[in-house]
């Protein structure tokens, strides 16, 4: 059952009286790209914040390689190889590209100078990392505030993959980006996939999902409405599921669907 990379089982989460997630189950494999779609307040972000350690679930469990684990902070999730690319990139504009990539996980010298930052190694690794992802970013010592939105997204993606990530969650990775930059992001997702990294894309843009994902999972009001292999669906069907909140194929089989 659990040969998935990550499996979330029957996750529920409430904020006060508001139920954000009701017994949501979600799984994905290494090298798989999954699109998580749904309306505002469908629970996409909450589900991924639980997976990335920002929230703890009220009930349900998370299995990584089949082993239950608890992430009580984003750091714990990152240590397990689960990285988040935030919608606003969570970059410090004044710091350089390299400093942002290693922020919170700086490399230090060894031995006598072990309290000091190993800037040269970090700079070399940042360059290597960005090349591997096929991204184009100005030199590592450029402050992030001086680079374009697409390049900032590239830095955020490079940071998420800097430490042997196994799963990268991207929250609206193409929002506010130019067409050229969107192409670059999609390319980078493809590169991650080919390196065996699983990717979850939270997006309002169905074309992003159809373009890059293997599978789409639709959420509505804290529940999974349905899921599709991208190869055998189209934007009309997914859009219908997002809006109607029900799976048309299941509805056709079972008559009027549960609306509880």
């Amino acid at each position: 059952m659990s040969d998935h990379l990550v499996e979330m089982r029957l996750i529920s989460k409430s904020f006060g009286a508001v139920v954000a997630l009701r017994q949501v189950s979600f799984a994905l494999d290494a090298g798989e790209v999954v699109g998580l779609v749904g309306d505002n307040a469908a629970g996409k972000s909450t589900l991924m914040k639980i997976l990335s350690g920002a929230y703890t679930p009220d009930s349900g469990e998370i299995l990584l390689d089949g082993h239950p684990c608890h992430f009580d902070s984003p750091m714990a999730a990152r240590a397990a190889g689960i990285e988040m690319v935030y919608q606003d990139f969570a970059l410090v504009p004044e710091l350089s590209v390299t400093q942002n990539i290693f922020l919170g996980r700086e490399l230090l010298h060894r031995g006598l100078r072990s309290r000091f930052l190993d800037k040269r190694t970090m700079s070399e690794r940042a360059t290597h990392l960005i090349e591997r992802l096929g991204l184009r970013v100005p030199p590592g010592d450029t402050p992030v505030r001086a680079i374009s939105g697409g390049q900032q997204q590239a830095v955020a993606i490079a940071r998420a993959t800097a430490f042997d990530a196994r799963l990268v969650i991207m929250d609206e990775p193409t929002a506010n980006l130019s067409a050229a930059a969107i192409g670059k992001v999609r390319e980078a997702i493809g590169n991650l996939k080919s390196h065996g990294v699983a990717v979850v894309i939270i997006s309002h843009r169905i074309e992003d999902i159809l373009e890059t994902a293997d599978r789409a999972v639709v959420l509505k009001r804290g529940q999974v409405v349905g899921e599709r292999r991208v190869a055998d669906t189209g934007s009309d069907e997914i859009l219908h599921m997002i809006v109607a909140g029900q799976d048309p194929r299941r509805a056709a089989n079972n008559g009027p669907s549960k609306s509880a």
Binding site: S73, P74, M75, R78, M84, Y86, F89, A90, L91, V92, P93, E94, L95, Q99, L103, G104, R105, E106, L108, R115, F116, L117
Partner: peptide
């Protein structure tokens, strides 16, 4: 040259980003 100096700059530059990165 130290983490502390870098973190001071990160906190001042963008506090939410610093926090998200575990500082």
């Amino acid at each position: 040259k130290t983490r502390f100096g870098l973190y001071a700059l990160a906190v001042g530059g963008r506090e939410e980003a610093a926090r998200a990165m575990g500082i």
